[in-house]
Design a protein around this nucleic acid. Sequence first.
DNA 1: CGCCCAGTTGAGGACACTCAATAGCGGTGG
DNA 2: CCACCGCTATTGAGTGTCCTCAACTGGGCG
Lengths: 226, 226
Amino acid sequence: MGETKCRYCTTRNLALFAGLDEGDLRRVHQPIKEVALAQQDALYRMNERGSALFTLRSGVMKLMQYLPDGSQRIVRLLRDSDALGLETLVGQPYQHDAIALTDCMICVIPVEVVDLLGREQPRLYRELMTRWQQALSEADVWLTEFTTGTARQRVARLLLRLACPEGGNHLPLFGREDIGAMVGLTTETVSRTIAELRRQGLLRDRGANIHECNREMLRRIADGEE
Amino acid sequence: MGETKCRYCTTRNLALFAGLDEGDLRRVHQPIKEVALAQQDALYRMNERGSALFTLRSGVMKLMQYLPDGSQRIVRLLRDSDALGLETLVGQPYQHDAIALTDCMICVIPVEVVDLLGREQPRLYRELMTRWQQALSEADVWLTEFTTGTARQRVARLLLRLACPEGGNHLPLFGREDIGAMVGLTTETVSRTIAELRRQGLLRDRGANIHECNREMLRRIADGEE
DNA sequence: CGCCCAGTTGAGGACACTCAATAGCGGTGG
DNA sequence: CCACCGCTATTGAGTGTCCTCAACTGGGCG
């Protein structure tokens, strides 16, 4: 059961273990489990100590952090074959609440498996480092794009990046609350801003699904050209 | 010459190669060079392709990113034995402008050295992963602490974290412009905010050096309790 | 049908930004 | 030694944006 899944990952060249041969995999997929999460479920909580990391097979998850005053911030989104909980690899407790934004399928990978395989397959480390770098780049982008400029600019950038990106792979428009937590605005401001974009015909959506969006115009707004 | 430096790093258990034995080190320190940077110098620029990563021996550096509209944001600070330019390890161009905030001494480590050593010393990868995780945690902290709340809160948090942290290791108060780029405020607002903290006696400084600061009060402000 | 929750819209005010003038500090040259 | 310059920090006045609080709408579901 686990086997087909891991091989699937391998062929798609997406997941952590891409590039390992059959022998390596055989030793691996025994302990690898799979977990299904419903929307709103938590995969782990901040400061928990875990002994596994995770790969997202399908769905979208959010990583959240909190401040003493109760305000919360979405620090990153994960999808496709992104990795979560890498911090366990270096002995740290989880740094966020990991919560499912949609239903999710997740591979659970015990730390020992990585330690074991890594000893003979340094390639695995390269793969891991790539994941880490991805996360870091993403964090930096959020810092520069979603915390600067007017509400209009931030929302436009978020739409361009998540809801109607260049190469397909659209995400649904999540709740206003979540959007607010991503770009550092209140739900009301987000609502107003999106409503205005609609009125100007830059955006056409029904419910959570976006049907059409004027990427050029949004880009100009995002870049502060109007 | 390089030798004593690397050994120094080892004993202090700080730098990348801590934990490697003498034999390993001997193979390493030949190609490792050292570079001195004056304040304001750039170590590398965004989108450059490099073939080295770096370790900060002394001084403070900032990592910057820019937006199309010209606004800039400081994405992270580095000091002590922090690592820079890890992205070269996974074949990516540098993701930031790396600029010296003070005079700096820096070790330049060719990527090949890491690839080479890593093959026989998986422990090195663990060290690298730790660095990556440090950077990521730092990025997340900035996202939650320096982009939420009022100007007063943000500046208070910045002071607590950089200028007068718990265990010594104070940083100087950098220029208002830089502070603004860290917390997402204009130089004027930063100036006003700091001035007011001074007036309230929570802060005593001369020039860039802080002499005294009321950590308890600052914490209360940071947490939005007043 | 009515409840509940999410989104929308409105009015008012607070906070930070903009533009502009002033003050302080260090360095340079007369 | 002092005068002057340039740069950074500070302060002020006015404005705009976003937040707060609150009412209203609409869809989903018991």
